[in-house]
C-alpha cells in the first residue's frame, strides 16, 4: 500500500462544473489515480470504504440520480459482465428514484440521438441538461470514452459525477473507485442499504 497523497499540491479539487468550455483535465492539474484499496473524492485519495460511503450519501441525497451503464456491462460478452450487470441493477433498486440511461456504443448519432433514452460520449452534457440529472454514475464505459464524457460533463454542467472503473479509476470524476467488479458493486449496495437504514433511524429518533 502506498502512502496516501491526498489533494494535489496546488489544492485543485475536482468539483461539479460548469468548469469552463475547455476545462483542464484533472491529471494536468496534478490529480493522480488511486492505488489498490483506494478511491478518489474530488481529487483527494481516500480509502475505498470512505469513497463508497460518500457514493451512498450522494446517491441517496440526489433529486434525480442516474446510472449510465456502458457497453462493458450492457452487453453479455462474459459471465463477469453479466454478474456485474445484475449487481448494478440490484444497486439501482436500492436507491429511490434512480434511473438508467444506457450508452450501448460510442457512435456519434447526430442529429437523431434522443437524450431521454441514451447517452453518448460525444454529447453527454445534453443528456445531463435535458434531464436535470444532479448525480450520475458511469460504469462499464471504456476508459478513453469515459474520460472524454466525464470531462465534457464537468465542463458544461453542474452534475456530480461518479465513475466505477474496472481498471485504474477516472480522475475526472468527482468520486471514482478502481478495480470495481460485481463483488465491489455489491459492497456499494450494502453500504447504500446501511446508510439508508441509518437515515431512517435518525428520522425515527427525531
Amino acid at each position: 500500500m502506498s502512502t496516501l497523497i491526498g489533494l494535489p499540491k496546488n489544492g485543485y479539487r475536482v468539483v461539479p462544473g460548469p468548469e469552463a468550455y475547455l476545462s483542464p483535465s484533472a491529471a494536468i492539474m496534478g490529480v493522480v489515480l488511486p492505488e489498490e484499496g483506494q478511491g478518489l473524492i474530488e481529487g483527494e485519495i481516500v480509502p475505498q470504504e470512505v469513497a463508497m460511503e460518500e457514493i451512498a450519501n450522494r446517491l441517496l441525497s440526489a433529486r434525480n440520480p442516474m446510472l449510465f451503464p456502458g457497453p462493458l456491462v450492457l452487453w453479455a460478452w462474459s459471465d463477469k459482465a453479466v454478474a456485474k450487470a445484475k449487481a448494478l441493477q440490484d444497486m439501482v433498486a436500492e436507491v429511490p428514484g434512480m434511473r438508467i440511461i444506457p450508452m450501448p456504443d460510442y457512435r456519434p448519432k447526430y442529429p437523431m440521438i434522443n437524450p431521454e433514452v441514451e447517452i453518448n460520449p460525444n454529447h453527454p452534457n445534453l443528456t445531463i441538461w435535458h434531464n436535470n440529472i444532479d448525480v450520475c454514475m458511469f460504469v462499464g464505459v471504456h476508459c478513453h470514452f469515459a474520460n472524454l464524457a466525464l470531462k465534457i460533463v464537468r465542463a458544461g454542467t453542474d452534475c456530480y459525477t461518479i465513475a466505477l472503473c474496472g481498471e485504474r479509476g477516472h480522475e475526472d470524476a468527482m468520486i471514482t473507485l478502481r478495480d470495481v467488479h460485481a463483488e465491489e458493486v455489491r459492497k456499494i449496495t450494502e453500504t447504500i442499504k446501511r446508510v439508508k437504514m441509518g437515515r431512517v433511524s435518525c428520522q425515527k429518533e427525531e
Binding site: P69, V73, L74, W75, A76, W77, A81, V82, A85, K86, Q89, I100, I101, P102, P104, N114, V117, E118
Partner: peptide, 18 residues
C-alpha cells in the same frame, strides 16, 4: 453469443439496439 444484452438491461436499451 457475443451480441446478447445483459439480462435485465433489455428494458432500458434504445429500440435501435433491440
Amino acid at each position: 453469443e457475443a451480441l446478447k444484452i445483459s439480462p435485465g438491461f433489455e428494458k432500458v436499451m434504445p429500440q435501435e439496439y433491440l
